[in-house]
Amino acid sequence: MQVNKPSQSLKRPPAPGVDRTTLMLVGALVILLAVGPILPRWAMFMLNVSLSWGTVVLGMLLLMRTGLVSFGTGLYYCLGAYAAGALHHFYGIADVAVMLAASVAVAAAVAVVLGFLLAKYRDIFFAMLSLAFSMILYGLLVKTSALGSTDGFGLSVKTIAGFPLGEWERNLMFSTTVVVAFCAALGMHRYLSSHQGRLASAIRDNELRVEYMGASVRRVIHVNYVISAALAGAGGGLVGIAIGHVDPEMAFWTTSGEFVFIAILAGTGSVLAPFLGAIIFETVRSFAYEYSPNTWQLILGTTMLLVIMFLPGGLWSIFTRRKAA
């Protein structure tokens, strides 16, 4: 047994779980859970939404690593929110855990089906077909009066896994979002450093070679698509619960565009990037809405052009640039 030890380190890649990213994730988890209760109401809400959006963008990061940009993430974001909302709206279920499970399940189930189609598409055709699917949902919701048509409907929560939220509702919901985001980020980090995760980058670089090594490009894309949809669904459920309202706008293409924006802004260099990007996005948006509502998109567009031109790896590449050089 002992003879084998030195070669063991040679045979296996360094075990994920103790690297820098994991440490940073755990650090972020502890800090967020600790400062949560003392945050002012608006800051907690903003952070809550940011982390939920970060979870959605985390799924986009996986697709972008695979070489795909979706202009239809809103489909799953909206499905997740409506799934959570519908439980409350139609069945009176107000348990956070059950609602989020439904968000993820519905989003993933739809993605499993659509994935069979989308896994064949690349580049702008992938972007366009995913856009079409999200606009189909938008078109349906807008005309479905049982679901409130263009206005959507409200929802509220009472328990989490059977435990009553009571007066701690805001704190507990915030902690829930923090924990969901943490688990998503950690899971994604481990996934990306696994063989399956490396395959994503390989597919982005050269599909032909991947097929000529004997792996199925379509299967990898399909799996990654479902994972990304599940994360978008979770994010949608969290936002729906946080805001207490869902509406069809969540499936409109401009919502997906905002996710794309955050993903480009943040970069795909780390699982932490989407969250950082989402926090910056939400912060700037909140202040812009307050002080200069008609220049918010101007700021976004200009920032996006600057990032594309001067920081193709996104904001995150500022941190990693030194290492690469």
Partner: peptide
């Protein structure tokens, strides 16, 4: 040559050997 241009030599081989 059909390689994974953005991956390092060792990562290319990791993917290849990993699939096999």
């Amino acid at each position: 040559p059909q390689l994974f241009g953005n991956l390092s030599v060792i990562e290319n081989l990791q993917v290849g050997v990993g699939i096999a």
